[in-house]
Design a protein around this nucleic acid. Structure first.
Length: 876
RNA sequence: GCCGGGAUGGCGGAAUCGGUAGACGCAACGGACUUAAAAUCCGUUGGGGGUUUCCCCCGUGCGGGUUCGAGUCCCGCUCCCGGCACCA
C-alpha cells in the first residue's frame, strides 16, 4: 500500500490543472467573481502572505465545482512607493526588483496549488496597463473631477514626496511609521472625490455583506456634518468672516471667534499693534508638525488679533482670536466660539478670560452658576431674543431660516473627506498625462498620444527621491510641444499615487487585453460586481474608498452598470508566528528581558512576573543557544524573521498540509498562530484520509455504484445520514467562508467512515460516501483529493458536480429526546423521530430519574419541542 | 472621549430563529503494538462531590431582569482588541 507523499503527487496535479486550464474564465452561464486584493510584489513569500489567496482559491474551486463560470484572477500592484522604496533599499532598480519578485511570488502561488486565470494577469507598471490610468485621468479631467491647486500638503521627508490625507496615519507616513509628516505649500493635482462624498456615504447602507467595522471606518472618514454657515461682518472691513457650525441654535452665545493660524485672513485682519505677536504665533504653529499638535497636552494656546466681528443675531461686537485648535482644513477654517456650549471654546474662554453666555438650558433643571464645564446637550433656548423658549432642535432650523432670509447664512453640509492629492514626486509611477504650456496653461495629452511612457532611467542613483520628480532631470521626457498651440511646453514631471492603479484593476481583469478601452462595457457588466472580495483591513479607507469612487465615476460615464464594485467583502485575520525575543533571566517569579526585547515588545519595563508572561500569551522556552528565551506570537514578517517560508515548507511538507493548517487553525477573520502542532494535526488528518481510501482501493474499484438508501442497515443509515449532514454543513460553511468549521465537519465525517469500516464492508454506500468525501475535501486539499479521485474516476474532481444532500436523510428515524424538569436535564430517551406530543410526554414522565424529581410535586406545565426536548415544570 | 468588535476548558475554538454548553483539533494522561523509539490504534480529560453500569451541585467576564428554559434576548457595569480623535 502506498504512503501519502505530497511531494510525489502535488506537482503532477498542478501541471494537470495548468494544462487543462481549470481556472480559465469564460463568459458563459452564471458567473462568480472571486478576488483577493492584489499584492505589491515583495520578496520571498511566507505563509502570512498566502492566507487570503488560499481562502480565495478554496472558494474559487468550490464555485467551479458548483458549475459557476468562475473568474479568479491575479495581478501585481507593481508601481508605487512600497515597491520603489523596497527596491531602493536593496540598491536595485524598481523594474528589476518588481519583475524578479513577481516571478518568485508566482512560484510560491503555484507551489501552494493556488489557481488563477493567468491569461488575465495585470501588472500595473506595464504601459498596456498604465496607459489606461492616463486615459481615466483625462476622462476625469474632462468631467471636471481633476484640478490643480496650491496650498498646504502633507510631505513625507523620507519618501520625499507629498501624500494623500488617507496616507497619513496618526501624523506619520503610511510607509514610515517612524517619520512625522510635514506640511509644505505646493501646487499639485487633485481628484475631486468630495463630489461623491454623499453617494459614498449613503451607498454604504447598500453594502449588506461588508463588515460593520469597515463601513464604520468609511463613515467616520467621510465625516458628514449638518449645520449652517454663518457670515460675521468684519468691523471696519467690507467683507465677512464665514464660519461653519453644527449648533446654529447657540448663535446668541457666540462671544468671540477663532481663526486658524494658517488661514490667509489671519495676517490680513491683524491690527498693527498686535501684528508682531500674531506673526510669531502663526510661525510657531507652522513649525509644529501635525503630531505635535495632537500629542501635546490639550492646553489651549492662542492670541488676539485685535480685530472684531459683529454677531449677526444680536449685533454684538466679538473679538477675533487665532488659535491652533481650529483647523484650517476643516469647514471654513474659522469658528464662532460658544464657550457655554462647547468644551473647547469653554477652556479657551477660561484661559483667556473671555465672556461666557449660556443660551441653552437643560429641559428640567438650571445650569450651575458659574458654569464649570460647557453644557453640550440639547435643551431650551435662553438669552436668545425672539428665539428664547424654543427647544434647541427647533432653534437650529429657525435660526438657520432667519439667517438665510437675511442673506447672512445658510444650511450647509460639511465633510471631513478632503480631495485626493495624487501627484507624487517620485519615479516609479504612472506619468501624469498633462502638459504645461506658458500660453495655454495645463493641457491634457491627446488620447492618441497615450501612453506617456515612463522613461527608462537605468542608474538607480538618479531614481532616488530628491524632493522633486527625478523625471525633471530628463529633458527628452520633459520638453515637448503644446498639443493646443504647438508651442514649446513641458510635461508634468510627477507620477500618480499608486492607489490610482489599484482603484480599477478589478475591472481590467474582466477584459485584460483590450487595447481600445480600459475595459469593454459588456465584459465588465458580465463579471461585475466582484462577488467576494478578500483582503486586509488596512485598506478599509484607502483602497476600498478610492475603488468605490472610481466605480461610481465609471457608472456615471456609462462605462459600467454597477455603481458599487464589491458585493461581499471579507477582511481576513493575520498569520502570526512564534517569535524569539531573546534570552530571559528567570529568578523564581521574576523574569527579566533584554532592553532590546523590551523595546520590540513595547513594554514599560523589562522586568515581568511569570503571571504577566502568561497573560501576554508568551512562553519561556529554550532558544537556539540552549538558554531560556522569551517567545511570543507576532505577525509574520521579514524583519522579525518569524515567517514560515512557502517554498521550503511546501517542498518539505506539502501544499495541502499548509492549506489545511491555515484554514483550520482559527476562524478566517481572526488572527491565527502558525504552530508546529497545527501542522502535525493537518498532516495526521490528510494521512487518515489517504489511508481510508487507499486501504480499500481495490475493493472500492470493484464495488457497485448504486444503492437504495431505504434499504440500509443501522450502521449504513447512520453513515448515509452523516454524509448528507456533512454535505449540508460544508456547503453552508463554504458560502459563509467558515473554512475552519467546514474542515471540522470533514474530520467528523472521516471519523464516521472509520467507524463504519470497523463493522461494515466496502459496498456501494461506502464507495459513494468515499467519493463524495473527496469532492467535499477538494476545495481545501485539492491535490490529495484529485489524486485519490483519479484512482476511481477518469475526470478531474473539479469537473464532477458538487454533491447535493438528501433532505430526508438528515434526521435519524430514532432520535435522542432530552427530558428536563424545571429546565434541568434529568434523562435522555431514544424515541422515533415522529413521536407525537402525547406519547413523548407520557414516556418522559415514566423515566426513572424523572420520576424521582417529580415525586411529591405537581406538574404545572409541559413543554414539548419536537425532535429536541421535553420540559416538565413542577411546583411544590 | 466617540465609534466598531469581542470575553466560552490547559490552548485554538464549536454551539446564536432561546432548547442536551464544550463539536472538531491541539496539548496532557493511561493503555495496546514494538527490543526500543517514531508512527498508528483504543480510552480519559470543565470544576467539585457522592451511596461511582449511575446520580447530585456549580459552570460561557461581573450584577440584575425577561422566560418553562439564556452562552444566545433586555438593562447596568468591568476588561480586552481595533479604528478615530481639538472636525466646530
Amino acid at each position: 500500500m502506498s504512503k501519502y507523499n505530497p511531494h510525489a503527487i502535488e506537482p503532477k496535479w498542478q501541471r494537470f490543472w495548468e494544462e487543462r486550464g481549470l481556472m480559465k474564465a469564460r463568459e458563459e452561464g452564471k458567473k462568480y467573481y472571486v478576488l483577493e486584493m492584489f499584492p505589491y510584489p515583495s520578496g520571498d513569500l511566507h505563509m502570512g502572505h498566502l492566507k487570503n489567496y488560499t481562502m480565495g482559491d478554496a472558494l474559487a474551486r468550490y464555485k467551479k465545482q458548483q458549475g459557476f463560470s468562475v473568474l479568479h484572477p491575479m495581478g501585481w500592484d507593481a508601481f508605487g512607493l512600497p515597491a520603489e522604496n523596497a527596491a531602493l533599499k536593496f540598491g536595485k532598480h524598481p523594474a528589476d526588483w518588481t519583475f524578479d519578485n513577481i516571478a518568485k511570488a508566482k512560484e510560491s502561488l503555484n507551489l501552494m496549488g493556488i489557481l488563477y486565470d493567468w491569461d488575465r494577469e495585470v501588472t500595473t507598471c506595464t504601459p498596456d496597463y498604465y496607459r489606461w490610468n492616463q486615459w481615466i485621468f483625462i476622462k476625469m479631467y474632462e468631467a471636471g473631477l481633476v484640478y490643480r491647486a496650491g496650498g498646504l500638503v502633507n510631505w513625507c521627508p523620507k519618501c520625499q514626496t507629498v501624500l494623500a490625507n488617507e496616507q497619513v496615519v496618526e501624523g506619520r507616513c503610511w510607509r514610515h511609521e517612524d517619520t512625522l509628516v510635514e506640511k509644505k505649500s505646493l501646487e499639485q493635482w487633485y481628484l475631486k472625490i468630495t463630489a461623491y462624498a454623499d453617494r459614498l456615504l449613503n451607498d454604504l447602507d447598500k453594502l449588506e455583506h461588508w463588515p460593520e467595522k469597515v463601513k464604520a471606518m468609511q463613515r467616520a472618514w467621510i465625516g458628514r456634518s449638518e449645520g449652517a454657515t454663518v457670515k460675521f461682518a468684519l468691523e471696519g472691513r467690507g467683507e465677512a468672516l464665514e464660519v461653519f457650525t453644527t449648533r446654529p441654535d447657540t448663535l446668541f452665545g457666540a462671544t468671540f471667534m477663532v481663526i486658524a493660524p494658517e488661514h490667509p485672513l489671519t495676517l490680513e485682519l491683524v491690527t498693527p499693534e498686535r501684528r508682531a505677536e500674531v506673526e510669531a504665533y502663526v510661525r510657531a504653529a507652522q513649525l509644529k508638525s501635525e503630531i505635535e499638535r495632537q500629542t501635546e497636552d490639550r492646553e489651549k494656546t492662542g492670541v488676539f488679533t485685535g480685530a472684531y466681528a459683529i454677531n449677526p443675531v444680536n449685533g454684538k461686537k466679538v473679538p477675533i482670536w487665532t488659535a491652533d485648535y481650529v483647523l484650517y482644513g476643516y469647514g471654513t477654517g474659522a469658528i464662532m466660539a460658544v464657550p457655554a456650549h462647547d468644551q473647547r471654546d469653554f477652556e479657551f474662554a477660561k484661559k483667556f478670560d473671555l465672556e461666557i453666555v449660556p443660551v441653552i438650558k437643560p429641559e428640567d433643571e438650571d445650569l450651575p452658576e458659574p458654569l464649570e464645564t460647557a453644557y453640550e446637550g440639547p435643551g431650551v433656548m435662553i438669552n436668545s431674543g425672539e428665539f428664547t423658549g424654543l427647544p434647541s432642535e427647533e432653534g437650529k432650523k429657525k435660526i438657520t431660516g432667519w439667517l438665510a432670509a437675511k442673506g447672512l447664512g445658510e444650511a450647509t453640509v460639511t465633510y471631513r473627506l478632503r480631495d485626493w492629492l495624487i501627484s507624487r514626486q517620485r519615479y516609479w509611477g504612472t506619468p501624469i498625462p498633462m502638459i504645461h504650456c506658458e500660453k495655454c496653461g495645463a493641457v491634457p495629452v491627446p488620447e492618441d498620444q497615450l501612453p506617456v511612457e515612463l522613461p527608462e532611467i537605468k542608474d538607480v542613483e538618479q531614481i532616488r527621491p530628491q524632493g522633486k520628480s527625478p523625471l525633471e532631470a530628463h529633458p527628452e521626457f520633459i520638453n515637448t510641444t503644446c498639443p493646443k498651440c504647438g508651442g514649446p511646453a513641458r510635461r508634468d514631471a510627477d507620477t500618480m499615487d499608486t492607489f490610482f492603479d489599484s482603484s480599477w484593476y478589478y475591472l481590467r481583469y474582466t477584459d485584460a487585453h483590450n487595447d481600445r478601452l480600459p475595459f469593454a462595457r459588456d465584459k465588465a457588466d458580465y463579471w461585475m460586481a466582484v462577488d467576494q472580495y478578500i483582503g486586509g483591513i488596512e485598506h478599509a479607507v484607502l483602497h476600498l474608498l478610492y475603488s468605490r469612487f472610481f466605480t461610481k465615476f465609471f457608472h456615471d460615464q456609462q462605462m459600467v452598470g454597477v455603481d458599487e464594485p464589491f458585493e461581499r467583502l471579507f477582511t481576513q485575520g493575520m498569520v502570526m508566528g512564534w517569535t524569539d525575543y531573546g534570552p530571559a533571566l528567570v529568578e523564581g517569579e521574576r523574569v527579566r528581558l533584554s532592553e532590546e526585547a523590551r523595546i520590540r515588545l513595547e513594554l514599560e519595563s523589562a522586568e515581568l512576573s511569570q503571571d504577566e508572561v502568561r497573560k501576554m500569551g508568551a512562553e519561556l522556552r529554550e532558544g537556539p543557544d540552549g538558554r531560556v528565551h522569551f517567545w511570543k506570537p507576532a505577525v509574520m514578517s521579514k524583519s522579525l524573521g518569524n515567517g514560515v517560508m512557502v517554498g521550503p515548507f511546501v517542498r518539505e511538507q506539502g501544499a495541502d498540509i499548509a492549506r489545511v493548517t491555515i484554514l483550520f487553525a482559527a476562524p478566517p477573520e481572526k488572527e491565527m498562530v502558525w504552530t508546529e502542532e497545527g501542522v502535525q494535526g493537518a498532516w495526521r488528518f490528510l494521512n487518515r484520509v489517504w489511508r481510508r481510501a487507499i486501504e480499500d482501493e481495490e475493493a472500492l474499484k470493484k464495488a457497485a455504484d448504486g444503492f437504495d438508501p431505504e434499504r440500509l442497515d443501522e450502521a449504513g443509515k447512520s453513515l448515509y445520514r452523516k454524509l448528507n449532514q456533512t454535505i449540508k454543513k460544508v456547503t453552508e460553511d463554504l458560502e459563509g467562508l467558515r473554512f475552519n468549521t467546514a474542515i471540522a465537519a470533514l474530520m467528523e465525517m472521516l471519523n464516521a467512515l472509520y467507524d463504519y469500516r470497523k463493522t461494515g464492508g466496502v459496498n456501494a454506500l461506502y464507495k459513494n460516501a468515499m467519493l463524495v468525501y473527496l469532492q467535499l475535501l477538494a476545495p481545501f486539499a485539492p491535490h490529495i483529493a484529485e489524486e485519490l479521485w483519479h484512482r476511481f474516476n477518469e475526470n478531474s474532481v473539479f469537473d464532477a458536480r458538487w454533491p447535493t444532500y438528501d433532505e430526508g436523510a438528515l434526521v435519524a428515524d430514532t432520535i435522542t429526546l432530552v427530558v428536563q424538569v424545571n429546565g434541568k436535564v434529568r434523562a435522555r430517551m431514544q424515541v422515533p423521530a415522529d413521536t407525537d406530543e402525547k406519547t413523548a410526554l407520557a414516556l418522559a414522565r415514566e423515566q426513572e430519574n424523572v420520576r424521582r424529581h417529580l415525586e411529591g410535586k405537581e406538574i404545572v406545565k409541559e413543554i414539548y419541542v419536537p425532535g429536541k426536548l421535553v420540559n416538565l415544570v413542577v411546583k411544590g
